[in-house]
């Protein structure tokens, strides 16, 4: 017989899984943001508008 509703075990672990998911998303966002800042030399708005900022 298949299980149709989540077992209590799944409910208990869902908090852990959601937490880990959020941590991983935050990590990706941090690496992305850091890359943008490093590549643009810290002048993100100038890089977007195409000006050198000088």
């Amino acid at each position: 017989m298949s299980i149709h509703k989540p077992h209590e075990l799944h409910n208990r672990r869902s908090g852990r899984n959601i937490g880990l998911g959020l941590v991983l998303i935050a990590f990706v966002a941090i690496v992305f943001g850091l890359t943008v800042v490093k590549v643009t030399g810290g002048n993100v708005s100038a890089a977007i508008t195409g000006t050198t900022g000088q």
């Binding site: 077992h7 209590e8 075990l9 208990r12 908090g15 852990r16 937490g19």
Partner: peptide
């Protein structure tokens, strides 16, 4: 095993939460 009828005996305290 989830199909095992004894699954209801899984202890609730040993599973760590994110916190």
């Amino acid at each position: 095993r989830m199909s095992d009828t004894s699954y209801q005996n899984i202890p609730t305290t040993s599973d760590a939460e994110f916190g």
